[in-house]
Amino acid sequence: MAALTKLLVVGVLRTRAARSITEPAALARADLHRRFRRLVEAHLREGWPVARFAASLGVSPDRLHAACTEAVRRSPQGILHDRLMLEAKRSLIYTTLPVSKIAFDLGFNDPAYFSRFFAARAGLSPAAFRRTNRGGET
């Protein structure tokens, strides 16, 4: 009985030790994800690649990827694309700007590439999305 109790105590202590080692690392990754999200907001329209965000944060792209994947189960590229799509949809619904102007405003150098990017994610072209979501207005 004493031996089982000792094994139980050792197991609890090892678990606590493992948590104390991993919790600071998990907190650091969560903080990195938050800082990445703030940078995305600040530089969304500048067309930064993930590597530039990582460099600005002082980490490797792989470390940024691990932090984002752990925090929200999305890659940094996925987070960036989601945010671009949200802004694109807002602009298409709430403004009358031409699609080409929206593309340039979001940091795309080529409106045709923006249209392909948007269509691949939304399932329809920016113009069709606008018509569908504004009741046929253009």
Rank of each mutant, 00 (worst) to 15 (best):
M1I: 10
L4S: 10
T5D: 05
K6W: 01
L8A: 09
L8W: 05
V10A: 09
R14M: 14
T15G: 12
T15Q: 15
T15S: 13
R16T: 07
A17Y: 11
A17R: 14
R19E: 15
R19F: 09
S20D: 12
I21C: 10
A25G: 13
L27R: 15
R29E: 13
D31P: 03
H33S: 11
R34Q: 12
R35S: 13
F36H: 15
L39G: 01
A42I: 02
H43Q: 04
H43F: 04
L44M: 02
L44T: 00
E46H: 01
G47K: 10
W48R: 09
P49S: 01
A51P: 01
F53G: 00
F53T: 00
A54R: 02
A54L: 06
S56C: 06
S56I: 00
L57D: 07
R63K: 10
L64K: 09
L64S: 03
H65K: 08
A66Q: 13
A66W: 04
A67S: 11
A67G: 07
C68Q: 10
C68N: 12
T69W: 13
E70H: 11
R74G: 01
S75H: 02
P76Q: 09
Q77I: 04
G78F: 00
L80Y: 11
H81N: 15
H81G: 07
R83C: 02
L84R: 14
L86N: 06
E87R: 06
A88C: 11
K89A: 14
R90F: 11
I93F: 10
I93G: 05
I93P: 05
Y94R: 14
T96H: 12
T96Y: 12
L97N: 13
V99R: 14
V99Y: 13
A103E: 09
A103V: 04
A103M: 07
F104H: 14
L106M: 06
G107P: 13
F108H: 10
N109A: 12
N109M: 04
N109Q: 14
Y113N: 08
F114H: 07
F114L: 05
S115N: 06
S115C: 04
F118A: 02
R121K: 05
R121A: 00
R121Y: 00
R121F: 00
L124G: 04
S125K: 08
S125A: 11
S125D: 06
A127S: 10
A127Q: 09
R130Q: 01
R131D: 00
R131T: 07
T132M: 12
T132C: 08
N133G: 01
N133Q: 04
N133K: 03
R134T: 15
